[in-house]
Amino acid sequence: MTDAAVIECTDVSRVYPGGVRALDRVSLAVRPGDFLAVVGPSGSGKSTLLQLMGALDRPTGGEVRVAGTELGRLSDGALSRLRGETIGFVFQQFHLSPLMSVCDNVAEGLLYSGVRHRERRLLAVDKLTRLGLGHRLRHRPDALSGGERQRVAIARALVGDPAVILADEPTGNLDTANGDTVIEILRGLAAGGTAVVVVTHDREVAAGMDRVIEVRDGRIVDVPDRVTG
């Protein structure tokens, strides 16, 4: 506990309208450099947890703190800003626009930060080059393989230098080799000090990560076969 937590959940619950208790008094802290896997069966509440950590949603009970700020009291505008500045999202479906080049898709990650168009593009080129996509800048996402697309999405999440990367099933649409590449990239980010949280139900993927949290029926359970070392 040397570093202050970037995300801290305390007794967090999320009850959806209609009474589904997707999360039930979950507590969890994510620190800079963490490389954390969230696993659990379908419908256990993994995505719900990630959405709360990413300030996309507010808890119905308990407290979520992102970068030291408690979400419950924030306005929609303040939540938006927090997402834009502190968090980078990566989704299973990539969510890339077919109307823009790869470079512009990545630059879109800074659209709401007030950075100028030219500068956004320069930063996008930088991130894409680092992820080995420097030769694909002008292509449309449709022309890329699934693995490349997910790397573009990661570049977009990274372009604003967020403190946390939240990835929901980032390897879900990829084959093993491409999935491994993506996980390796994320590991590199964590090694550089970014907190990385990956939701996955691929046990093998989770096994390669520093910390694994298992969610069942909206609660965190201890993982008996935790990898040590």
Binding site: L56, G77, R83, Y112
Partner: peptide, 16 residues
């Protein structure tokens, strides 16, 4: 809708 969701995740406010 998914484009809207993505933009909100990237930091867009409702007015944006």
């Amino acid at each position: 809708r998914s484009e809207i969701g993505l933009r909100r995740a990237l930091g867009a406010t409702r007015p944006h």
